[in-house]
Computed example of a mutant assay.
Amino acid sequence: MIEQDAHGCTTNDQVTWSWAGLIRGMRSMVPLALGGLTDGIVWGVLAHQAGLSLIEVLLMSGLVYAGSAQFLAITLWSVPLAAGSILPIIVTTLIVNLRYLLLGAALRPWFARLHPMRTYLSLFFMSDENWALTMREFMEGRRDTAFFLGGGLLLFVAWVGSTVIGKMVGLAISDPVQWGLDFVFTAVFLTLLVGMWKGKSDLLPWAVAAIVAVGAARLLPGSWYILLGGLAGSLVGAIKSDKHVK
């Protein structure tokens, strides 16, 4: 009989943390980090268009460190930043990043065995790509938790560095419209939507989100329509998923 501890791991699982695992995590993440450079540069250009300084770009990329949330936040950004526009940015970023609660919970069986400092340091660098590769490692029987930190560090450096490059590129462009960069944000999110489409089951939540967003844009000032549309679509999607499970 295989015994399990309170975290669901078998008693013979040996959770480790080594420099070799950290380096292997970095190497495994190289293709994904290179693929994400374009997104970071695009965000940096958009940040420049929104009026963010180099220091603000560094702080947002380094502290928020969430590409999808940063793309949404930059659409809500105004210079100077009005008091009424801060709350939608905070709430929108929170909602977009709520998925990390689930991702972190999935890692708990292994990371709960580490010293808290190693756990919290590693989790700061969590990303969707890093989580997916690490979970594959664990499912295949490898238990070196430094793999997660190594991959996360590389992605972090790539993201922050590419957003700074994008900011500098934006400085060199006097007329973004001439280069078609006024359409960059729309193009990025169209690409994200195509990648997220899972079939006809997504049609109703997306339609509700669009209707609520358009209605809110007409009735409410500011950028609350983004938040309200996202909440409405998420609620419909959650209800549909719950009924399907039952």
Rank of each mutant, 00 (worst) to 15 (best):
R113Y: 03
A217C: 04
Q49T: 03
A238P: 00
G104W: 09
H244D: 12
G199L: 03
L59P: 00
N130F: 04
A112K: 05
L235P: 04
G237T: 08
T10C: 11
L114I: 08
I23C: 08
L121Y: 03
L81K: 09
A207D: 02
S61Y: 07
K200C: 01
T92D: 07
A216R: 06
L102H: 00
K200S: 13
M135L: 11
G21D: 01
G44I: 04
R143G: 01
R118I: 04
Y65H: 13
F185E: 09
W179K: 10
G8P: 03
A238R: 12
V96I: 15
V188N: 04
I2W: 10
L227Q: 06
G151P: 11
T11W: 07
L228Y: 10
L52K: 01
V157H: 05
F185V: 12
S61E: 05
A47Y: 00
G222N: 08
A158P: 03
W110E: 12
T163I: 06
K240W: 04
H115S: 11
R27D: 05
Y65W: 13
L107E: 01
Q70A: 11
A106I: 00
D202F: 08
T92H: 05
G237C: 08
F111H: 04
V169N: 01
W159H: 05
L87F: 15
G195A: 02
P88I: 10
I74V: 15
T75Y: 06
E137I: 00
R142E: 14
H48Q: 14
D39T: 10
R118V: 01
L153F: 13
I55Q: 10
V57D: 03
P80I: 07
Q49I: 02
I55F: 14
W131M: 07
T75V: 03
V212Q: 12
N130K: 00
M168Y: 13
F71Y: 15
R113S: 10
L72M: 15
L231E: 04
A232W: 06
S28G: 05
S223R: 14
L46M: 15
S162Y: 07
L63Q: 01
T11H: 13
T186W: 08
T38A: 15
A132K: 04
E56S: 07
D182N: 15
D128P: 10
S18N: 04
G166T: 09
G195E: 12
I90F: 15
R99Y: 13
G229E: 02
K243M: 12
P31C: 09
A172P: 01
W206T: 11
I74A: 12
A33W: 06
V79N: 14
L123N: 04
I55C: 03
S78F: 04
G150K: 06
G151Q: 07
L149S: 09
W17A: 14
A172M: 14
A33P: 07
A20N: 10
P80A: 12
L171P: 01
E56N: 02
S122M: 03
F124P: 06
G161T: 00
S201D: 15
T10K: 11
G44T: 06
A217T: 00
A106W: 01
L227M: 10
L133R: 11
L34F: 14
V236H: 09
V164R: 08
S122C: 11
L103H: 05
V42D: 02
L204F: 13
I239A: 15
G233Q: 06
P80F: 11
T16P: 06
P31K: 10
M126F: 09
M60I: 15
G199E: 08
S78R: 11
G40C: 09
Q178R: 15
L58D: 02
